[in-house]
């Protein structure tokens, strides 16, 4: 059974056919990289799994999107519950204008958790998981904006982890960061997959190679190729995949 799955999934933005019959399954505790040129549909595909596309007008979805074998677009699915199970990290760090501690505690508080000790422990655990604890443990009451860009992004990851999702979606999580911060995020992704199923959109081919177990190449709304990352990067089957990963596209 797959953790995440799309079956013959079509998505339309008005008349524009953005995803064309995507069928793809992702196993538990793996990292899947979604790659492809701009406008290929990879971010749209990522956002299917926490129903963020619902916020866009004129979106029409056909086919099935499943988490733990359950259709998340079916009747009786509470979007709030879904988003507790599926965390998301965006391209640019977007901490709230609060303290470091409150950023991480936020998700717990809005879910009605008030127990101080529980919140303290969960905040610490999340910051440790996000490899940020050692850097911020003495300034938890300081504003999150005092952190560097790379630290802010790890804070956002800690915030996503605090509500203990089982899936983490990442949309170019390191593209706004310097090489050292990028490297920290990549190592973090590698560690996190022991406990989470991770899907990452990236424009950085080397990053896909370094962090992922599986890679899916999208082009013009189609899933061209999906395989072990090792296979995609050493012997892709489709010429379009080869041209893209070798930078010869166009």
């Amino acid at each position: 059974m797959y953790k995440l799955e799309a079956r013959d999934l079509h998505l339309f933005y008005g008349d524009f056919h953005a995803l064309k019959g995507i069928t793809l399954g992702m196993q538990t505790n793996t990292v899947t990289a979604l790659i492809g040129p701009s406008g290929c549909g990879k971010s749209t595909f990522l956002r299917l799994f926490n129903r963020m596309n619902d916020l866009i007008e004129n979106v029409k979805i056909e086919g099935n999107v499943l988490i733990d074998n359950k259709n998340i677009y079916g009747k009786g699915i509470a979007i709030d519950d879904l988003r507790k199970r599926v965390g998301m990290v965006f391209q640019k760090p977007n901490p709230f204008p609060k303290t470091i501690f409150e950023n991480v505690a936020y998700g717990l508080r809005v879910n009605g958790i008030k127990h101080k000790k529980f919140i303290d422990e969960r905040v610490e655990r999340s910051l440790v998981q996000a490899a940020l604890w050692d850097e911020v443990k003495d300034k938890l009451r300081k504003s999150a904006f005092e952190l560097s860009g790379g630290q802010q992004q790890r804070l956002c990851i800690a915030r996503a982890l605090a509500i203990e999702p089982s899936v983490v979606l990442m949309d170019e999580p390191a593209s706004a960061l310097d090489p050292i911060s990028t490297s920290k995020i990549e190592e973090l992704i590698h560690d996190l997959k022991k406990e989470y199923t991770i899907v990452i959109v990236t424009h950085n081919m080397q990053q896909a190679g370094r962090v992922s177990d599986k890679t899916a190449f999208f082009y013009l709304g189609e899933l061209v190729e999906y395989d072990d990352t090792k296979t995609i990067f050493t012997k892709p089957k489709d010429l379009r995949t080869q041209n893209y990963i070798t930078g010869r596209f166009g």
């Binding site: 080397q206 190679g209 370094r210 990352t229 090792k230 990067f233 050493t234």
Partner: peptide, 9 residues
């Protein structure tokens, strides 16, 4: 070795 070169540059 091929995998290390391809994946980790």
């Amino acid at each position: 070795i091929e995998n290390i070169i391809a994946l980790y540059n």
